[in-house]
Design a protein around this nucleic acid. Structure first.
Lengths: 201, 201
DNA sequence: AGTATTTTGTGACTTAGGTCAATGGCCATA
DNA sequence: TATGGCCATTGACCTAAGTCACAAAATACT
């Protein structure tokens, strides 16, 4: 596997898992062997549209975006992924179909990946892993539901303010046109919204 | 428990579960005892904004909508739930917080409900149930993600056509203003979109 | 069948946000 | 300190969809 290495440390994965389920060091040592690590430079892709999604991706350091490109050629960012988060195309990982998503490192980053095969094996043999994954899915579902609700009843300015409140440092780490795309508006609209907010103060 | 009865049949729940996990008749007979049934007339609510969500809700027959009312007093429909689907506010069911959702029967309907306590017990003791729930969550997450993507890159007419293609009979079962709300547009816009489509043919 | 209520359709008008195009700032590298 | 590639801002204009108001259907209720 080109570019993949056995992992040394996985402190973050361990810490995060313990937030959801109880497991001891030994459980984790075994589990660790299922993962490989990969480093990516800014601008590199974990995968792109048309690729097969054979791995689940845990962000160990850095920052990622997942986006699609629609028929008009416009990018739509679905997620920014910070350390401790999982990212990628869940649908294709499950179904085996080729993905429509791009998963791109926005900074020097490191991921831990686990193959579909190992993943299924873990789910079957390690009840705590099944439970961990279930809880992640629950939270993920609720948060994307909230995002959908926000698109229905929130104007551009409020969407921007909500994001900045939730992730203040995102402003210093990703260009505004990506933030606009994540929020579902044009970069010009975001620009105007921001200047209105400044003038109002 | 007012209005709740021990369940007799739960054919649909059994059939649906078998689509996701393997379980035999005995497993299911035990599991059945955790559920109660409730009948609702058109216009009745499973719960409303401000209620505590102590139960998970499986639709056995009929049709439901879940919606919220935003600060401007506008309804936004999140889901129509058909027989065989789960419905309700997952976030509040997990967190124990009071819900912002309304869950309303749109027809004479029957639900099977399971208390949070029984739910947690099942997850702990019945591995097949955990796995079932995990798979439901996966599919739910993917489908709501697709819905979010659709809001970003699809115009009103296309959204309507997509819905009609996916659920042709919804047109005969729910008023158009609810369909508009589900699609995130005003009822007038939906009306105009529909007449354009008719004229185009 | 006759009335009341809900639902839908249309016209006139408004508006939030998109599109296009030009300009200028900001690094990064030579 | 130039130069080229991003990125962000701003103005002018456009457009899809929202809002308001009223009338017509459709349904449900007696």
């Amino acid at each position: 596997m080109e570019g993949y290495k056995e992992i040394q440390m996985a402190e973050l994965l361990y810490t995060k898992m313990k937030e959801y389920v109880s497991l001891d060091k030994e459980d984790f040592e075994l589990l660790k062997n299922f993962f490989y690590s990969r480093s990516l430079s800014k601008g590199e892709f974990v995968y792109r549209e048309g690729d097969a999604v054979n791995h689940a991706v845990f962000v160990n350091s850095g920052l990622f975006r997942t986006y699609i490109i629609d028929e008009q050629g416009t990018e739509h960012i679905l997620q920014f992924a910070l350390p401790g988060w999982w990212t990628g195309d869940l649908g294709s990982f499950i179904s085996g179909e080729r993905t429509r998503f791009y998963v791109e490192a926005l900074e020097e980053s490191e991921i831990l990946v686990i193959s579909k095969q190992s993943w299924d094996e873990l789910l079957e043999k390690a009840p705590f892993y099944l439970d961990y994954h279930r809880k992640l899915l629950e939270r993920g579902l609720v948060s994307i539901q909230n995002r959908l609700l926000q698109t229905y009843s929130t104007d551009a300015a409020k969407k921007y303010l909500n994001l900045v409140e939730a992730f203040p440092d995102i402003l210093h780490r990703v260009p505004l046109y990506m933030i606009a795309s994540y929020l579902g508006m044009s970069r010009e609209t975001l620009s105007r919204v921001r200047s209105q907010i400044v003038n109002k103060k």
